[in-house]
Simulated scan of single mutants.
Amino acid sequence: MYSVDKTNFKKYLVNFPHQIAESYKIFKQAKISLKKDKINNIICLGMGGSAIAGDILSDVLFDSLTLPLKVNRGYGIPAYCTESSLVIASSYSGNTEETLSAVEAARKKKARIVAITSGGELLSLAQKYKWPVLQIPEGFPPRQAFGYMFFTLYQLIGKMISLDISEGFFNNLVHKAETIVYRCNEETASGKVFAKDLALHIKNKIPVIYSSDPYLSAIGVRWKNQFQENSKSMAFSNVIPEMNHNEIVGWELENECLKNYLVLFIEHENIHPRINARINLTKNIIRDRSIEVMEVYAEGDTPIEHVLSLIITSDWVSYYLALYYEKDPINIVNIDYLKGELKKQS
Rank of each mutant, 00 (worst) to 15 (best):
N41L: 03
H268M: 07
A115Y: 01
E187T: 11
D336E: 14
A30I: 02
G46Y: 08
Y215I: 09
A105H: 08
N230M: 07
V181R: 02
I161K: 05
V249K: 07
K344D: 08
S346R: 15
I330Y: 14
H268W: 02
T96R: 13
R222V: 02
I116V: 09
Y182I: 02
I39E: 10
A322F: 03
C81D: 00
I271G: 09
P207L: 06
H306I: 12
Q155L: 08
N334P: 14
F62Y: 14
Q226Y: 07
G49C: 01
D55L: 00
Y75F: 10
R287F: 00
R278S: 00
I202P: 06
M234N: 15
I311S: 04
P142M: 12
V14F: 13
C184G: 06
F227G: 15
K110C: 09
A277V: 15
Q144N: 14
T313Y: 02
S346P: 15
K28G: 00
W131D: 08
T188N: 01
I113P: 04
A322N: 11
V293D: 12
Y182H: 07
F227H: 14
P137V: 11
V174W: 06
S237T: 14
P78R: 10
A105W: 12
Y154K: 04
Q19L: 13
L61F: 02
S233K: 07
I77F: 02
L342N: 08
N334K: 13
Q19V: 12
G49I: 04
Q228S: 15
P137S: 13
L100F: 11
Y297H: 11
P214M: 05
S50T: 11
N72E: 13
S217M: 10
K128E: 06
Q144E: 14
E167K: 15
R274L: 07
I248N: 09
D59G: 12
F27N: 13
Y324L: 09
A218F: 03
E242L: 08
H268Q: 05
Y319I: 14
S3P: 07
S346W: 15
N331Y: 14
I291S: 07
I286H: 00
K108D: 10
D59A: 10
R107Y: 05
A79F: 15
K36F: 10
I285M: 13
